[in-house]
Structure formats: structure tokens, C-alpha cells
């Protein structure tokens, strides 16, 4: 089996669903002959035709709004927003309609759509191309938020997102698009949503992260292991709704918790996870938990992006503080 990158895994999952479900339609800017600015849809229009892979006019609210109308009429649209910094015009459609339609109509209408977007910093991109804005969407009732951290999880989670009967916002970490390769079998097997993945087992401390930061977090766990500290690393994967059971079970064993995310700290998901753990398992904690996050600043242009993003050193230092606390 050939090893493929995360972006190739996305392409593989999209091709699989286009081939197996006639209701699946892709729409977005430059996703046709150009194959998407990150090449995630390369070859798909050629293979499946212009009625399955649609280049849209340049308007993000329109892309989300069209997808809602299409989904409510029985299609399964997979819409692409070109960069996460361009996703804000979709917020109105996603919160006011995508997440509400099932509730408002008591299930008469539903919105089985996926809104895919590249996300995060670290690839020397221009302004508005490096934001991590998952918390905005995690605050929307009725909307799922999912992000993969490896080619295999990208394939399995995207299949699950497309097959899910409710709207899913799917953040694809641009830094991981081509970072490394993994064997991915095109078997059509979806991974479960609403479930964390334990990527590394450990008894001493629980590190929770998602998306691209999983890689710094795993590296931090390796560094900690050199001094005999065994860290458990949990990939959140579905950012809303969160699988707290896996996190609580881990914290009950380790008594120590660090949450790592690239998005700004205030009102980020790290605070949410710390609050839930404090409420439900505060007495399991041997030390105050810590967040390692992007700062509450404008995502800087790329000369400073590595100072903005949590580094392995910051994660290791935070873990040591929690271990000593």
C-alpha cells in the first residue's frame, strides 16, 4: 500500500464518497480544473464531472447558504472555504440556519453538509491564511467541528463527516497537508465522530491537543520520556461535541492535565476542557491544569508565526510545571 500525505488522504476520501454516493456534491472556489489551492480536489472534476464538482463564484456566505439549500433538498454538499481567514462570512448562515434547521422544524428538514477549510499557521502564508478559529464554530449548537491530525484520521474522519446527517465544519491543518506520509487504505471505513483518539498511553500526565499541534505535543511527550515521564497524548479530533469521557478517564489515572491548542487562549477550547475537568474531576487533579495556546493577539504575519504557535519547549515546560505542582 502506498504512503500518502494528509491532503492526498482528503482527496481519497472525497473521491470515495463521490464514487459511492450520488448525493455527494463538492462546491467551492477553484476546486475544479485547478484542483483547489492546496490540491485537495485535484482530478475530481475531471473524474466525476462538472455536476459533481462545482467551481463557485467567489462568495463565502453564498457557498454556505447554497450548501444549506442543497442539503435540505436531499444532497450531501461538501463545500470548501479556501482559507480559514475567509470563513467569517459563513458564520451567519452556519449559526442561524445550518445548526438550527433540524431543531426549528422538529426534524422535518436537516442539513447534512460539510464545510471544509484549511486552518492554522506554519506554512509562511499571506495575511488571513493562518487563523485557527475552531472555537467560533464550536460555540454553535447543532454544528459539529472536526479536525484530523494524520492522513489516516483525515480519511476516516472526513468520510464520517460527509456521512453524518448534521452539519460538520472540518478544519484541515495546512501544516500537516504535506508534512509526512502514512499508509491509508481506501476501504471506505469511517472513523467515529464525537470520540477522542489516544495516540500515546502514559501514566504521569495527560496532554490533550488536536490538529497540527498534535505533532508538537507528541514530540513533547517524547522529550518528557527521556527523563522518565510517561505522557498520555489524546487527539480531541471532534472539537464539538467533545468526548470528555476519554479525557476524564485519563486524568483519573494521571492526575495532571495540559491542553495545547494553536488558537488564541481566551474563550478557546482549552479553557472549556479545563472547566469541564475541574467541575467533574477536580479532586482527581494533583496539580492545577495548564493551557498552552496561541496568544490573544492577531495571528502575526509569518516572520513571527513560530513565536505565536505553541512550541515543543513551551509544552514541555508547562508539563514540568504541572508535574512539579
Amino acid at each position: 500500500m502506498a504512503k500518502i500525505t494528509l491532503v492526498e488522504a482528503i482527496n481519497l476520501a472525497l473521491a470515495h464518497e463521490l464514487a459511492h454516493d450520488p448525493a455527494v456534491v463538492l462546491l467551492g472556489e477553484d476546486i475544479g480544473p485547478n484542483g483547489g489551492v492546496f490540491r485537495s480536489t485535484v482530478g475530481l472534476q475531471e473524474r466525476f464531472g462538472e455536476d459533481r464538482v462545482l467551481d463557485t463564484p467567489l462568495a463565502e456566505s453564498m457557498i454556505a447558504g447554497l450548501a444549506i439549500g442543497m442539503a435540505a433538498m436531499g444532497l450531501k454538499p461538501v463545500a470548501e472555504i479556501q482559507f480559514s481567514g475567509f470563513i467569517y462570512p459563513t458564520v451567519d448562515q452556519m449559526i442561524n440556519h445550518a445548526g438550527r434547521l433540524r431543531t426549528r422544524t422538529r426534524g422535518r428538514l436537516s442539513v447534512p453538509m460539510v464545510l471544509r477549510t484549511p486552518s492554522g499557521a506554519g506554512i509562511h502564508a499571506p495575511e488571513h491564511h493562518s487563523e485557527s478559529n475552531e472555537a467560533l464554530f464550536a460555540h454553535m449548537p447543532g454544528v459539529r467541528v472536526v479536525t484530523p491530525s494524520s492522513p489516516r484520521r483525515a480519511y476516516g474522519l472526513l468520510l464520517a463527516a460527509i456521512r453524518d446527517p448534521d452539519p460538520v465544519v472540518f478544519f484541515e491543518p495546512t501544516r500537516l497537508y504535506r508534512l509526512h506520509k502514512q499508509e491509508v487504505e481506501d476501504d471506505g471505513e469511517a472513523l467515529p465522530l464525537d470520540t477522542c483518539f489516544v495516540l500515546r498511553e502514559g501514566r504521569d500526565i495527560t496532554l490533550v491537543s488536536w490538529g497540527a499541534m498534535i505533532h508538537e505535543t507528541l514530540e513533547a511527550a517524547r522529550v518528557l520520556a527521556e527523563t522518565g515521564v510517561e505522557a498520555e497524548v489524546i487527539d480531541l479530533a471532534t472539537l464539538s461535541p467533545i468526548d470528555y469521557e476519554t479525557i476524564l478517564e485519563s486524568v483519573a489515572r494521571t492526575g495532571r492535565l495540559v491542553v495545547v491548542h494553536e488558537a488564541p487562549r481566551t474563550a478557546g477550547l482549552g479553557g472549556e476542557i479545563l472547566a469541564e475537568v475541574a467541575e467533574r474531576a477536580g479532586y482527581d487533579l494533583a496539580a492545577p491544569p495548564i493551557r498552552v495556546t496561541g496568544y490573544d493577539v492577531v495571528t502575526p504575519l509569518f516572520k513571527l508565526e513560530h513565536e505565536f504557535m505553541p512550541s515543543v519547549n513551551r509544552i514541555v515546560a508547562a508539563a514540568r510545571r504541572v508535574l512539579e505542582g
Partner: peptide, 26 residues
């Protein structure tokens, strides 16, 4: 299949275009 009331102003026009797109594609 008709949509429910749309209070936010204007958003429903895109749903109609999306529905029309679904009709056209099928």
C-alpha cells in the same frame, strides 16, 4: 419541503439558490 420562516433578512435567498441547484443537478 418548504423552508420555515427566515428572520435574519436575506439569508433565505441563498437557500433557494441552493435548492434550485439541487433540482438542476438532479
Amino acid at each position: 419541503h418548504d423552508f420555515p420562516w427566515a428572520v435574519p433578512i436575506g439569508t433565505q435567498t441563498l437557500h433557494a439558490s441552493g435548492a434550485a441547484l439541487a433540482f438542476r443537478l438532479r
